[in-house]
């Protein structure tokens, strides 16, 4: 044991390799190879009668996806709502993160931080379900509207409901990295900007926003990706025409047992995310994670 440890200490590369071996094997075996398997599977088809997977290489699944506009609409809806949620969260996070970074005392800052972290880690299903009850016809929202003498709203089970719920679910993921980026901006920089004659608004636009961009981009990875890959929220608060890519994937695996077709549709979010991560990387998101 001692001699082994000593050998490893004298050979840094060997030591790194021995530390990294197990996690690396796990990652390759259960993540990278699984992703590769998804690609392979997407090129297979299923026998209509027996439900058996037919090995062999064909683009049939992709042809169906490209030719049937239903899937195009689903893909556009998924990406569109993911973008809308990301933008909304990006806007909502600003005042909160700004106050945390610039105006709150250290004590209050720690408290606000804890308050933002709590919903982030508390049950996802519980929070979606809460909105299902709130937006339902006889839910809290309509009760409150009625109490105020306003007409009742029927936004439950619609794309609007999904937009609200996703925005709610992922907001902490945007606030935390944005706060971290804002906190790192030295006050001297802001003073310099105002000494040089830039008014508050101009300092904000020309100094604060560019420096906060990596944090914003880091948050945008989570808000976008988490929305893009969801199917539970569309099922629970969406309406009849609220299907996401995830819903098609889910029902093809669970109900129709057509794993190759599901795998083919799942390739799309992978490509979208690859492009998205490249842009986010340009904006410096990876240094702000």
């Amino acid at each position: 044991m001692t001699t082994l440890a000593a050998t490893l200490w004298r050979h840094p590369r060997l030591r790194i390799a021995s530390l990294l071996a197990l996690p690396a094997i796990w990652f390759v075996a259960f993540y990278l190879l699984a992703l590769a398997a998804m690609f392979v599977s997407s090129l297979h088809t299923v026998d209509d009668l027996s439900g058996q997977i037919l090995p062999g290489w064909t683009l049939a699944n992709f042809r169906i996806l490209a030719s049937d506009w239903t899937y195009g609409r689903i893909a556009l809806r998924t990406v569109g709502i993911a973008l809308a949620v990301t933008i909304t969260d990006g806007l909502l996070a600003w005042p909160f993160a700004y106050v945390m970074a610039r105006h709150a005392s250290p004590r209050l800052r720690a408290m606000l931080m804890a308050l933002v972290m709590l919903p982030l880690w508390s049950s996802y299903l519980a929070r979606v379900y809460a909105w299902r009850l709130i937006l339902a016809h006889d839910g809290v929202l309509n009760w409150a509207l009625h109490g105020l003498g306003l007409p009742t709203a029927s936004i439950g089970y619609s794309n609007w409901a999904m937009w609200i719920v996703f925005t709610y679910l992922w907001l902490p993921f945007m606030i935390l990295p944005l706060f971290a980026a804002l906190e790192r901006i030295p006050t001297t920089l802001l003073e310099a900007s105002s000494d040089l004659g830039a008014a508050g608004g101009r300092t904000f636009r020309r100094v604060i926003v560019p420096l906060a961009l990596p944090g914003l981009a880091a948050g945008a990875i989570f808000t976008f990706s988490l929305t893009l890959g969801d199917y539970v929220t569309p099922l629970l608060v969406g309406g009849p025409s609220s299907d996401f890519i995830g819903n098609v994937v889910y029902s093809n695996v669970g109900v129709s047992n057509n794993v190759p077709f599901a795998a083919a549709f799942a390739v799309l979010p992978l490509l979208v995310m690859a492009g998205y991560l490249l842009i986010a990387r340009r904006l410096g998101a990876f240094d702000a994670l």
């Binding site: 993540y31 992703l35 398997a37 988490l226 890959g229 969801d230 995830g246 994937v249 795998a263 992978l270």
Partner: peptide, 9 residues
């Protein structure tokens, strides 16, 4: 990457 990818993969 979205959870649906990990799951599907």
């Amino acid at each position: 990457l979205p959870g649906i990818l990990t799951g599907m993969a």
